[in-house]
Write a protein that binds this DNA or RNA. Structure first.
Length: 218
DNA sequence: ATCCCGAGGG
DNA sequence: CCCTCTGGAT
């Protein structure tokens, strides 16, 4: 029998409450409050860990504290700094293009709208929502691979394969069920949960705090 | 071997 | 709807 809409809503809120207990104080691992720094750090965080990003940002921002400085950087120099992150060539391209566009189109000031942000090189919806939420306190729901997988298992029970799902649909569905001031926080907790427990290949359902209600728990 | 708090491009 | 980009940790 199909779960009613009301029941599902209550379950989702209960699950959120459990995640809040599981991760008592999730703050953005990239702790930057400066929008430029947060944007750059978030772009760098693709396919890496926050720890590694945090290990290169001091040197990066010491040399290039703002968009104008980064726009005029030599690609080689930037590559040398961010090399340990992997994908350093494409990331450097993104960073330089990003800094140029920021400098040229926005006077070096990070814009505050989804359309403007995603128009920047290397910035997609996920990155834009992280920046909007954490730097500007404009509610957004960042959807990455973890969020796709966890919400897929929790809500749709569909095979969580990312390619077949629609991140914007996930974004809309979740946003419809939670108040805006919880979006950023919920996304972050889902990501942490995805990394810690709800793994892609072998989810640790036995030790999952949501295994009582998760329709995919096995 | 496998995975990592994605985005651009074919 | 794929694929690629990349080094480092585990």
């Amino acid at each position: 029998m199909r779960e009613s809409k009301q029941a599902r809503l209550e379950r989702m809120h209960a699950e959120y409450a459990i995640l809040c207990r599981e991760f008592p104080a999730p703050k953005c691992a990239l702790h930057f409050t400066n929008p430029f720094e947060l944007l750059v750090a978030t772009v760098l965080s693709a396919q890496t860990t926050d720890k590694r990003v945090n290990s290169v940002t001091p040197a990066l921002f010491a040399s290039y504290p703002n968009a104008a400085a980064l726009a005029n950087a030599r690609a080689e120099d930037v590559e040398d700094i961010i090399r340990p992150l992997g994908f350093f060539r494409s990331k450097t391209q993104h960073l330089l293009g990003l800094a140029n566009a920021l400098d040229r189109d926005f006077g070096g000031v990070v814009p505050r709208t989804m359309d403007e942000l995603t128009g920047l090189p290397g910035v997609g919806r996920k990155t834009a929502n992280v920046v909007l939420g954490n730097a500007f306190h404009i509610p957004g729901f960042p959807v990455d691979t973890h969020v796709m997988r966890v919400t897929g298992r929790l809500r749709w029970r569909s095979d969580w394969r990312i390619a077949k799902s629609d991140p914007v649909k996930v974004e809309r569905e979740i946003c419809a069920c939670f108040p805006p001031e919880e979006w950023t926080d919920l996304s972050h907790r889902l990501i942490l949960h995805g990394r810690a427990v709800c793994h892609a290949r072998t989810p640790d359902c036995a030790n999952c705090p949501l295994n009582e209600t998760c329709p995919s728990a096995g």
